[in-house]
Nucleic acid binder design. Structure first.
Length: 417
DNA sequence: TCTGGGGTCCTAGGACCC
DNA sequence: TCTGGGGTCCTAGGACCC
């Protein structure tokens, strides 16, 4: 059996924890750049504010109802997340941290465990220890645990245990197919065309038909809804397969110089993340994007992947590559809104193969990056950085409604990132 | 005027190997 | 004029997740 746990209205709950006056008020948290709504209190949901609504489209409504708005405060949320995960680890032999506010717990064979009592206990104790309201779904597969969690929320319960075929049948009978984990817009449209409206309808389809329309992933989901586990709970790999830093500009950018500054910053961030997880990258992908929402503008989405002669994680090397790349793909005449840098071909630091071209400069740069890390660790992120990574940052992100760093120091922020 | 920023996995098709 | 039959690896693109 598996449990799926998540924080209710995660970012709003984190803000409320340090500002109890926000209880019972309409509260929303905005994305980076304050562009759209990414977390809503129940009061905001009741008002009709939708996930990912653009801020400028709901601004008036929010003002009329004296709603409180926050910019994203990730250091705070990451810190609260870590506290939650530390708590959850005590209730299982294997914890899979799935996202900043979600985790799966392996519960094993259940002969000796009263699942209802266990779920109630987790819910109460986590609330007492962290102040965070959570919901728990329990089921024989990860997909059913996830579904149980969502069903619990609909029933306004703290937990829901689906441990018998009868309980599962009852819940999936009127569970909308679009709310099932793994069904996005494309599959929803396909399934609707096949006459599927609920999880129960989907389960009744022939496995081969599902596989044909939704590949092996859909087939696995189908199996899981029948109680046959296809997804194994596991530690999320310490080394991810790609590391990215990207951001939209606060205003349109047309010149090359701003791109160079932004890309330098992203390259430095990627390099730092690589060093923190003791990895190196063999490839660097750099991209630029215009605003896809603005159909009046000419669109340009250039992307380039550069293979480096040897794996690297030092800021100098990655910045140099990123700058060459951006100069190659940038074109005048476009209004760019976003740029990003992604490292792939990630390998452990110890397994680097040097070649004829690796030289003295390379090892010097590694040392220099380590030294910069030490200084930045002590005095704050960005204390020491390359000149290419600018000081002006006229394109930097909007964060007009940021709350305080209630729990974290500068050092913690580096870790959180 | 104004619409995050990360990730994952799978598949098809091309490059290349013998 | 005629021109094999396997493999593997990599990448781009599409689907999904939070």
């Amino acid at each position: 059996m598996f449990a799926h746990v998540d924080i209710n209205n995660c970012y709003v709950s984190c803000e409320r924890l340090f500002n109890p006056a926000l209880e019972n008020r309409i509260v929303v948290v905005l994305s980076n750049n304050d562009g759209c709504v990414i977390a809503r209190s129940n009061e905001a949901k009741a008002l009709g504010i939708k996930m990912a609504d653009a801020e400028f489209m709901v601004r008036k409504l929010l003002q009329e109802h004296q709603a409180v708005m926050f910019s994203s405060n990730y250091p705070l949320y990451a810190d609260m997340s870590a506290r939650l995960m530390n708590n959850l680890a005590r209730y299982t032999y294997m914890l899979m941290v799935y996202s900043i506010d979600e985790a799966f717990l392996a519960l094993g064979n259940i002969e000796h465990l009263d699942l209802e009592k266990h779920a109630a206990k987790i819910s109460e104790e986590v609330m007492r220890h962290t102040g965070l309201p959570i919901t728990i779904g329990v089921g024989p597969t990860m997909s059913l645990a996830k579904l149980a969690n969502k069903a619990a929320k609909k029933q306004k319960r703290n937990y829901l245990v689906l441990d018998t075929a009868a309980k599962i049948d009852t819940v999936i009978r009127d569970f909308p197919i679009e709310d099932v984990w793994g069904v996005g817009l494309q599959y929803y449209q396909k399934l609707t065309a096949l006459g599927v409206r609920t999880a129960h309808d989907f389960r009744e389809l022939e496995p081969d038909l599902v596989r044909k329309h939704m590949t092996v992933q859909g087939w696995r989901l189908h199996q899981e809804l029948w109680g046959k586990a296809c997804h194994a709970i596991r530690d999320i790999a310490e080394r991810s397969k790609g590391i990215e830093s990207s951001q939209s500009f606060s205003t349109y950018q047309t010149g090359l110089e701003a791109m160079e500054e932004a890309v330098s910053m992203h390259a430095a961030t990627v390099a730092l993340k690589l060093r923190q997880q003791k990895s190196m990258a063999l490839q660097l992908t750099i991209y630029l994007r215009t605003n896809k929402h603005n159909i009046k503008h000419d669109q340009h989405y250039p992307v380039i992947t550069v293979k480096m002669p040897f794996a690297a994680n030092n800021t100098h090397q990655l910045t140099r590559v990123a700058l060459q790349a951006i100069r190659a793909i940038w074109q005048p005449g476009y209004k760019y809104l976003k740029t990003g840098v992604r490292a792939t071909g990630i390998i452990p630091e110890g397994e680097v193969q040097y070649n004829l071209f690796s030289n003295y400069t390379h090892s010097q740069e590694q040392k220099l990056s380590s030294l910069m890390d030490e200084i930045n660790d002590r005095y704050g992120r960005g204390t020491l950085r390359l000149a290419a990574d600018s000081f002006e940052r006229s394109w930097a992100m909007k964060q007009a409604y940021l709350s305080k760093q209630y729990t974290t120091s500068w050092k913690d922020i580096v870790t959180a990132l």
